[in-house]
Each structure stands twice: as structure tokens, then as C-alpha cells.
Design a protein around this nucleic acid. Structure first.
Length: 805
RNA sequence: GCCGGUGUGGCGGAAUGGCAGACGCACCGCACUCAAAAUGCGGCGGUUUAUCCGUGCCGGUUCAAGUCCGGCCACCGGCACCA
């Protein structure tokens, strides 16, 4: 027994963290000789509250992969930065009269020190902040490219207006009718806004998913959000002489269209006001609908309302029958054409509306009872009451009717998306200024690249205004400028960009953060892109992840980046819940502060527990006792130095266990099954304790496998015992010796009629062919079988033998 | 309503169709100790203790089902009048 000092995580971890910092140990190599690996975590928003236990879950997982890849010989770029523009900082600044830049700097310093305390192998030399003018110069540059290519446009439109933040929100930022950030009420407000034409990229964003390795639920959620549907546009003639175009996914049911509905905002209402005898009633309905907030609209979605347009009717183009036209807010102006043909027999919403207002219901697909409910199952329906479509299956009828519509010139195939353009303006201070000026002669004009970055001016007050203007609007010195095109007087745009702007391309900047002539050197981009593995939260699937794919694809289309997609692989971690199984929140009082856990148990134990607590992609409740168990394990590993021998080999009786562990850990880390990988190492350590000794060679394998999870303690053991030459992080990852996994005999289960009756040792090389003969000759089998006839004998090599009688 | 996901001991969770409960937590016992903590070793699904029962419920396929198929139930997440 050797005398080994007690394991002291604070000392060990402090020592190695200083060492790593002084030596820039995790800086990516500038040379392009080695194969590259680019893992990425979502850069944090540096809030005043500091790190919570959720951050380290994603960070530790990718840190493990990054460290393993370095040991496997890759040049690894594992960067970190801060997504620092945004409302919480601005609100804090307003409340405490401190400049948001100062708040940001303070918060970043806190985050950085917390991250360093956890021993993540980030390349801090490449650290970025979205609020740094050297960074946002290029955010503005990308915006100007979008503007130049017609993908940014300003439009008067009803936006989601948060009454509490006094700011416009993207659709994605409105959750259950309230503001995603502050929970404030969201109302519709008409404002002139900068918009990005993400809808132009809808198809590309769907198609791109085929080429990447994202977990299914991310792909599914993005596809649903983009919401592609195939259908047809059909023209209906109106008695007023003009026509009304509808979009439908069920053109096959055209004979069942017994009325039409248009959205309250449909332009036809005002265009034909002279012919509408109840125009005043319809305007009143429209105003009532406009007053409803989004929240009310969804709450009331069961109860349909509407008004029939009097004085105008439509003609069903396939049977010539006159049908009424209604106005109802269940039809949205923002999707399709803002008008629908209603087929109450086969659409639930139309059916409800028809029942309420006593409209005709005509069955055109047989199989249901359309007086009882809409029959919407289109799988194997057969057409009825549809003249030339009668007797056809739904799918055939769809094709036939579209051919007919095209032939008659009254309709055509059409693809629609649910995705809307991205509202890109914010009436706020703490964001990237939009680098455009409005000139009375030239319209909106881009700043020349030489004037970038357009820096945020210093202002007296960051308060947003009730009239919906950005605080920048009050800075007349800054606002008033000259037009870059004609030199005449002009005014700057005073809205700023949303928080999603800076995060839409940050992974590109990490590749070459020092560059001041372009977003990143094309040679560097070629080497490092795409990001090989990106782990992040599901909550960003339809926000950041979609936005950044859009920007990246645009940059590809204009030749700035070499890959269509930014991220090759996307995984997602489950949330860490409070120990009560509820979401962690201040109000519930179940928040765990990582600093306290590190103080008590050390960063290695904390990291290990975060990975061991359960399946990585699932939500798991926190247990500090569980974390103590991981600390206990590290203590056990440490104390093995007391009975370690100087033998540098693997002892014969441990070869199987050691190689099994190498295999299990190597495979499980790649599949993000960190919990079972760690369990395998615990099993191995238990085996060394049972044996009462460990060789230096065995210890070396163990600390290599454990290093990505618990980097500090393993480096220290390596140094104390001189296991490897130099630091462990540069040592090669252990390779499993498959020959050591072969055993001469294996224990298998013995079953009678599928029930386990015992176990026995058989030669490992026993094949299925020789099995019957082998088993029937055994005394123990003879005893069990007796003289009953054996119907069948099932043998699974290495597993079991099952005798069916 | 639609789309995902999840249901296994007291708890977190393991299990390519092949010995259900690996590993850990909690708990119990023993050793060490004057004692406690720490540590080490052992035990730990249930019961009527045996050819027994047991992976949310009901049925099916199979020599064999937590795993596959059909039909439900519950909980969690996302979307939600998208024609």
C-alpha cells in the first residue's frame, strides 16, 4: 500500500485549469494537415443570473466528444462566445441606469469564469460577442447582402406587438398568444417593418434536411413549421363580374363546395363595396375581428362567427350552381389566397360553420355520415355526386380534376407553405443598427461597406417609446445624415435587428474571428465547414436553427460559404428538472446553482453526474445525492493508486473486462449514451476492487477513457503515476483488442418451453448445427427432459438453449 | 384536434426479439472504531419460497415479447381555424 494524499478536487482542478489557460491547451491548430472536427454548442446569452445546471449538460456532452476527438488525432475547433444583444440586458440597464455595454461586459466575465471552472475545453482565443462592433460589422454586412438581393423589404403590416416590452415580435416569439420572453399581452399593431423573405427559401429549407444528420424530431418539427402542402388554386366567378381565387388541398371535393368564405381583410370587400348591400355590417364584423388579440382568436376557435355577403354570389365552376359567399375570421388573409371554397361534408371547420348557419352539405366522398360529422378520411374514399369523377378513388379524382381545371383555364396545381416572412425590426436600443438610410429621392439606400460597422450611438435613455419608435429615433444628430447615393439629406433607419441576427452566422466567425476584410477567410471556411456536430435545445428548432439555416443557404447561393447546410449533425439534450420533477424556476425554489455543487463535489464529479443522471435526450430530475455518488466513484478511482502495481501491461485475467469497457465507452460516447458508458467504467473499477490490485497499464486505459468526462482528476493521476509521456489529453484514445473479447466457454441460459430453468457453461465455438447433438448428450438436459418427446431445440450462440416439448 | 415523445423496483435508470432490473441513489446488515463519520464487504421487485407472479391496460404474432403488430389509457413537449 502506497501513501496517496486525499483527493482534493479544488486543488487539482485549479491547478489544471491554470495550466490549460497559460498554455492555450485547447486552441485549434492553424495548420490544415490533420482531419478537422468542429463541434458546437449554442453560445449562451450572458444573463445576470449566471450559469444554470442546464448549460453544462450540453457543454459537457460536446466537451466529451471534443476531447475524445483530440485523442483520436483530429484538429478540433470547439469555440465559445456570447449572444449578448437582447432585451433582458436592456431592461436591466434601464432599471439601474447603467449602459447595456457595461452590463454585458460584467455578465460575460461572470459566465467566462463559471465556464472555466467547469473545465470545458473551449478555444478561448476565438471568443466572440455579438455586441462587439468588429463582430456586428459582419452581421450588418450580411443584412446588406440580403437587402441587395431583394430578400429584405419594408412593409406596413400588422405585427405581433408586446405591450410590455413595447416591441414587435416574430411569429416564432409569440407563445400561446403572449410574449415568449416576458409573458406580456401581445396585440396586433400595424407598423412599417423590415422583413426577410425566408419564404423564398421554404423549399430549400425542406430539401436541405435530406442531406443532414439531424435527430428525427428536429426534422419533423422543422418540416411541420414550414408546413408545405400540395393542392390547387381554383377560380370562382362572382355575380359581380370578377373572380375569386381559392386555394384548396382537396380539389377532388369541388362538387361538394356549397359556399365560399373570405377573410375579413380580403380586398374584394372594399373593391366591391358598391355591390354589397350589407357593407356596413361586414365592416363592423371586420373591426370586431381586428380587435381580437391572437390569444382571443385561439381561445374562441371553437365558436365560429361570420356574416353573409349580400348582393354578390359565386358560381361553382364545375356544376354552375350559384353559392353564397360569407366573411369569417376562421379564414386567414395570410395563408393561401385569403378565400376558401367550403366543403362542409369533408372539412371539420366548414361543417361546423355550415351547421351553425344552416348551409347546404353535399357528400362527395362515400364512406361517412356527413349529417353527423365531416368525413375527412381520404385514404380509401370513393367519389359520389361528382359527375365525371364518380366512382374514382380520391387520389385519382385529384389528378383528374386538376387536369380538367387546367384544360378549362380555371385552375392549376399549387404548393403553399405555412412559413411566414421573418419580422426583422425591433424598436429597441440594444441590437445591431440596420445600416440603411432613407433618402427622399433615392428611397432606401444601403451604407457602403466602408462605413461598416454602423455603431450604436450613445444615448441618454434606452426607454422604448409608447408610439412604437426605437430610442434611437430621438437621436437627431445620429438620425440625420446624407444619402450615400445622391449626397442629399437623408435619415437613418432607427429600428435595430432582433437577437436572432447575430446568432444566425456566429459559427462562421469562430472559424476566423480575427479577419477584418471578410466574414472569414474562404480557405478556412473550406477546411472547417460544415459544423460536424451541433447540440442544442429543442426550443430553438423553429427559431435559431431555422433562421441560421436560411442565412447560411443564402450565403451559399451568393458564393460566400462552400456548403449548402451549416450543420452536418444536430442533436438535442433533455432538460434538467428540479428534484421535485418540475421545471426549475425561481418561483418554485427548486433551482440548483452549479457553483454550489462544484464547491462541494468538484467540477469533475459535477460533469460526470450531469452525464450519468439518465438518458441524454430526456428530461431528468436533479439529485444532489446522485451527484455525490459520482464523487464517490472518483474517490475510488483516486484510491486505486494505493494498490496500483508498476506493471505496464494488462493482466491476463483483466483483458476481457478492460477491452469490454474500451468498446462500450467508445461506442456509447458516440451515441451520446453517456450514462451507460460511465456505468461501464464503474463496473470495471468494481472489478479492480474485487481483485484488490490494478496494474499501471490498466490504470492508463481507465484514465484515458475517463478523461473526457473528468479531465482534471485524470490528468493529475496521469502525472502522479507517470502513466503516459506528457499530458493525457494528447495521448491516443484506447483501441479495443477484439481478440481479447473471445472466450473459450460462455455461460448460457437453459430454457424449457421458453422459461429459464438454469444456466450452464458451453464451448464458445459451439455452432447451431452441432448444438442439438451436444445438448441432448448432456446429463443435466437428459434429467430435465426425461422421456418426453422434444419437439424442437432452439440454440442462440452465446445466449441460450431452448428445448420445446 | 394534429404531430412528436415517454410509461420498467422506494428513486434515477439498464436491456441488437433471447437470463428483466446493468450502473448509481436511498435503505438494511457486517467489518473497522470507545463512538460516529468516512471507507471496505454483503444484501436489496413481489409473494403464498416455486416448474410462482411481475416492464401502463386489453388482445395478437413467436420456441421466446419491456422490445414486433392491432386496439386503448395516462403523462410530457410542439403546433393549432394553415383550407
Amino acid at each position: 500500500m502506497k501513501n496517496i494524499p486525499v483527493y482534493n478536487p479544488a486543488m487539482v482542478e485549479g491547478k489544471w485549469q491554470r495550466h490549460w489557460e497559460e498554455n492555450h491547451s485547447f486552441a485549434a491548430e492553424k495548420s490544415h494537415e490533420k482531419p478537422k472536427f468542429y463541434p458546437l454548442i449554442e453560445f449562451p446569452y450572458p444573463s445576470g443570473a449566471g450559469l444554470h445546471v442546464g448549460h453544462p449538460r450540453s457543454n459537457t456532452a460536446m466537451d466529451i466528444i471534443a476531447r475524445k476527438r483530440r485523442m483520436e488525432g483530429y484538429n478540433v475547433l470547439f469555440p465559445i462566445g456570447y449572444d449578448a444583444f437582447g432585451l433582458p440586458t436592456e431592461n436591466y440597464a434601464i432599471k439601474n441606469h447603467i449602459h447595456p455595454a457595461i452590463v454585458t461586459e460584467k455578465n460575460i466575465a461572470r459566465f467566462r469564469s463559471q465556464l472555466k471552472r467547469l473545465g470545458f475545453s473551449f478555444d478561448y482565443d476565438r471568443e466572440i460577442s455579438t455586441t462587439d462592433p468588429k463582430y456586428y460589422k459582419w452581421t450588418q454586412w450580411i443584412f446588406l447582402k440580403l437587402f441587395e438581393h431583394g430578400l429584405a423589404y419594408k412593409q406596413e403590416m400588422p405585427i405581433n406587438w408586446c405591450t410590455s416590452c413595447k416591441v414587435g415580435l416574430a411569429n416564432e416569439e409569440v407563445v400561446n398568444g403572449v410574449c415568449e420572453r416576458c409573458g406580456g399581452e401581445v396585440v396586433r399593431k400595424v407598423k412599417s417593418q423590415w422583413m426577410l423573405r425566408i419564404t423564398d427559401y421554404a423549399q430549400k429549407l425542406i430539401d436541405g434536411l435530406d442531406d443532414v444528420d439531424f435527430i428525427d424530431r428536429v426534422k419533423v418539427q422543422q418540416r411541420n413549421w414550414i408546413g408545405r402542402s400540395e393542392g390547387a388554386e381554383v377560380d370562382f366567378n362572382l355575380s359581380s363580374g370578377d373572380k375569386l381565387t381559392v386555394y384548396t388541398t382537396r380539389p377532388d371535393t369541388l362538387f361538394g363546395a356549397t359556399y365560399m368564405v373570405i377573410s375579413p381583410e380580403h380586398p374584394m370587400i372594399d373593391a366591391r363595396r358598391d355591390m354589397i348591400s350589407n357593407y356596413a355590417e361586414i365592416v363592423a364584423y371586420r373591426e370586431a375581428a381586428a380587435r381580437k388579440s391572437d390569444f382571443e382568436r385561439t381561445e374562441m376557435n371553437k365558436d365560429k362567427t361570420g356574416v353573409q355577403i349580400e348582393g354578390v354570389h359565386a358560381i361553382n365552376p364545375v356544376n354552375g350552381k350559384p353559392i353564397p359567399v360569407w366573411v369569417s375570421d376562421y379564414v386567414l388573409m395570410s395563408y393561401g389566397t385569403g378565400a376558401i371554397m367550403a366543403v362542409p361534408a369533408h372539412d371539420t371547420r366548414d361543417w361546423e360553420f355550415a351547421k351553425k348557419f344552416g348551409l347546404k352539405i353535399v357528400e362527395v366522398v362515400a364512406g361517412g355520415n356527413v349529417e353527423e360529422a365531416a368525413y375527412t378520411d381520404i385514404q380509401d374514399g370513393v367519389m359520389v355526386n361528382s359527375e365525371f369523377l364518380n366512382g374514382m378513388k380520391v387520389a385519382d379524382a385529384k389528378r383528374a380534376i386538376i387536369d380538367y381545371l387546367v384544360e378549362k383555364g380555371i385552375g392549376h396545381k399549387k404548393i403553399n407553405f405555412k412559413l411566414r416572412d421573418w419580422v426583422f425590426s425591433r424598436q429597441r436600443y440594444w441590437g445591431e443598427p440596420i445600416p440603411l438610410v432613407k433618402c427622399p429621392c433615392c428611397g432606401w439606400v444601403a451604407l457602403p461597406e466602408s462605413e461598416l460597422p454602423l455603431k450604436l450611438p450613445e444615448v441618454e435613455s434606452y426607454e422604448p417609446t409608447d408610439n412604437g419608435e426605437s430610442p434611437l429615433a430621438a437621436m437627431t444628430d445620429w438620425v440625420n445624415t446624407t444619402c450615400p447615393k445622391c449626397g442629399g439629406p437623408a435619415q437613418r433607419e432607427t429600428d435595430t435587428m432582433p437577437q436572432w441576427a447575430g446568432s444566425s452566422w456566429y459559427f462562421l466567425r469562430y472559424i476566423d474571428p480575427w479577419n477584418d476584410t471578410c466574414i472569414a477567410d474562404p480557405e478556412e471556411l473550406k477546411y472547417w465547414l460544415p459544423v460536424d456536430w451541433y447540440n442544442g435545445g429543442m426550443e430553438h428548432t423553429t427559431l435559431h436553427l431555422l433562421y441560421s439555416r436560411f442565412w447560411h443557404r443564402f450565403l451559399y447561393d451568393i458564393g460566400v460559404v462552400p456548403t449548402k447546410e451549416p450543420y452536418q449533425k444536430r442533436t438535442s439534450h433533455g432538460m434538467i428538472l428540479g428534484s421535485d420533477g418540475e421545471k426549475m424556476s425561481k418561483s418554485r425554489g427548486n433551482v440548483v446553482n452549479p457553483d454550489e455543487i462544484v464547491d462541494e463535489l468538484g467540477a469533475d464529479a459535477f460533469r460526470m453526474y450531469e452525464m450519468f443522471m439518465g438518458a441524454f435526450d430526456q428530461a431528468i430530475p436533479w439529485s444532489t445525492d446522485g451527484a455525490r455518488g459520482c464523487r464517490r466513484f472518483l474517490d475510488r478511482v483516486w484510491r486505486m493508486m494505493e494498490f496500483m502495481t508498476e506493471d505496464t501491461g494488462i493482466s491476463e485475467d483483466m483483458k476481457f473486462d478492460v477491452n469490454t469497457c474500451i468498446k462500450k465507452v467508445s461506442e456509447d460516447f458516440e451515441r451520446m449514451k453517456f450514462n451507460t458508458g460511465i456505468a461501464a467504467m464503474m463496473t470495471l473499477v468494481n472489478a479492480f476492487y474485487a481483485k484488490g490490485s490494478i496494474t499501471k497499464g490498466e490504470m492508463t486505459v481507465l484514465i484515458k477513457l475517463l478523461n473526457p468526462v473528468a479531465p482534471h482528476i485524470t490528468e493529475e493521476i496521469n502525472e502522479m503515476c507517470a502513466c503516459c509521456d506528457g499530458e493525457l489529453m494528447h495521448a491516443p484514445w484506447p483501441v479495443c483488442d477484439e481478440s481479447a473479447l473471445v472466450k473459450s466457454t460462455v455461460e448460457i441460459a437453459m430454457q424449457i418451453n421458453g422459461k429459464v430453468r438454469g444456466r450452464m457453461n458451453v464451448p464458445a465455438d459451439l455452432t447451431r448445427d452441432g448444438a442439438a447433438e451436444y445438448f441432448m448428450a448432456l446429463d443435466e438436459i437428459k434429467k430435465l427432459v426425461g422421456d418426453k418427446p422434444v419437439k424442437k431445440l432452439v440454440f442462440v450462440p452465446g445466449r441460450l438453449v431452448n428445448i420445446v416439448m
